[in-house]
Nucleic acid binder design. Structure first.
Length: 421
RNA sequence: GUGGGUGUAGUUCAAUGGCAGAGCACCGGAUUGUGGUUCCGGGCGUUGUGGGUUCGACUCCCAUCACCCACCCCA
């Protein structure tokens, strides 16, 4: 074969689809129970949308975006994340009118031109929640609780919720200043990356993995000490709500968000044992985003999580998502007369939602029965020459070996009765 | 974008310069229409791809692609 799947992408094969359906529908169910409705946006958008929202200096925009120009010279990008498109749709479709707030969720592929690694792909699938229209700390807690409860419901245990507040733009600015002041005397001890970070993104100095940078960062000031009064109150209130909702969390003042639009609450769910990419999901408040892309000053909060990493974590915890579904019955016919009688029955059963396998290329009785066994069907529905002559069907339970001779239409009823159990 | 590891049958892996093999899976058979167990039979693989060294390359060298792992970044 001459063609290969693009780097960093993968096929979800039939043997895995069941798991994917499981985790996706669990998310949809929980989101719906919390009053969130699905929104689906295109997988590509104007490149500018992401440049404006994520920030031109962010890595996502600088080097990870799949960009392309269409036949009329318009600049587009495959979406690297889901929040900006949802915000765009919210504004474009005037969802702000007539409702106090919007509760939205999405599921779908995202694209980043990254070097593939454990838990990291170029096309990856995310689930996310966006709550748009209120700054009230209850909603921070609600959104976070949906994430936590979703992961919990699936059975994930060895995870931890880390919480931080990056404050409003003012506190944030003051903090950046404080960080720069703190690191300035050590500037030439820092790694080259950090020297750039110092002027561009001081916060990134905090999670550098180089030893000396780490040591210096030890004594750095904490964001939490630079929150102004309203931000402090907001953060305390979020914690309070979480506690009352029974969501366990730890404060981690070093959580840094990669995208520029985050304000106040920032959080992440960490799972050790995923390798270097140990973040299961992350999110935060983005009060500045909607205004930044041309809307009014509308507060919002949300999160996004990666299904691939979720699946890795589930495997790590040996959580069984249930067996792949198998056929209800396998139809066996011998000879043309039997087949003629069988085909209408086959259609009838299938229309009734019963999964019946049939393969006329297997002509020996033995091969057909073997195939029935191999596909793990519960029943073999046998119509041979004798049955055909008598207008009957032999229904064999492949587990017990028990078999019954039934009228052709009685076979239908029998299987339906069985399905109900 | 940088560094390390890996690439042989559908799959898991052997074969350290001399005829490319095994387990599992799959298919067929062991007298006419009863599966799972057992027995027998069934593999012509561009050894990821392209070059090079050599009488001879899965094996050594170079390049390239892909995967894995880490940096980076994040989900």
């Amino acid at each position: 074969m001459n063609y290969k799947i693009p780097r960093g992408t993968y096929d979800i094969l039939p043997s895995q689809s069941h798991d994917w359906h499981k985790i996706i529908s669990a998310f949809r169910q929980l989101a719906a129970a919390c009053g969130y409705e699905e929104i689906t946006t295109p997988v590509f958008e104007q490149a500018q949308l992401f440049e404006r929202s994520s920030g031109e200096t962010s890595d996502v925009v600088k080097k990870e975006m799949y960009r392309f120009t269409d036949q009329k010279g318009r600049e587009f990008a495959l979406r690297p994340e889901g929040t900006a498109p949802v915000a765009r749709s919210y504004l474009e479709n005037r969802l702000d009118i007539g409702a106090a707030h919007s509760k939205l969720y999405y599921v779908g592929p995202m694209f980043r031109y990254d070097r593939p690694q454990a838990g990291r792909y170029r096309q990856f699938y995310q689930y996310g929640i966006e709550f748009i229209g209120s700054d009230h700390p209850y909603f921070d807690a609600e959104v976070i609780s949906i994430l936590w409860n979703y992961l919990s419901v699936l059975g994930i245990k060895r995870m931890r919720l880390e919480l931080n507040s990056v404050g409003c733009p003012e506190c944030s600015k003051a903090y950046d200043q404080a960080l720069q002041d703190y690191f300035r005397p050590h500037l030439n001890e820092l790694c080259p990356d950090c020297q750039i970070r110092h002027s561009q993104k001081p916060r990134r100095l905090l999670d550098c993995k180089v030893k000396t940078c780490k040591q210096i960062a030890q004594g750095a000031p904490s964001q939490l000490d630079y929150l102004d009064e309203p931000c402090k109150v907001h953060f305390a209130s979020v914690q309070d709500y979480l506690a009352r909702m029974n969501i366990p969390f730890v404060i981690n003042p070093r959580i840094v968000r990669g995208l520029d639009y985050y304000t106040n609450t920032a959080f992440e769910v960490i799972y050790e044992g995923l390798g270097a990419q140990n973040s299961l999901a992350g999110g935060g408040r983005y009060n500045g985003l909607l205004e930044q892309i041309g809307g009014k000053n509308i507060p919002a909060i949300g999160f996004a999580g990666g299904f691939e990493r979720l699946l890795l974590a589930l495997r790590e915890e040996q959580i069984d998502l249930g067996a792949r579904p198998v056929a209800d019955a396998y139809l066996i016919t011998m000879g043309p007369a039997a087949q003629q009688l069988a085909l209408p029955l086959l259609s009838q059963l299938r229309l009734g939602g019963i999964w019946v396998e049939y393969d006329p290329t297997k002509n020996s009785f033995k091969a057909q029965l073997k195939a029935a066994n191999n596909c793990q069907a519960r029943f073999a529905l046998i119509i041979g020459e004798d049955e055909a002559a008598a207008g009957k069907a032999l229904l064999k339970d492949l587990q017990s070996g028990e078999q019954r001779l039934l009228e052709l239409d009685a076979a239908n009823q029998f299987i339906e009765a069985f399905k109900r159990n």
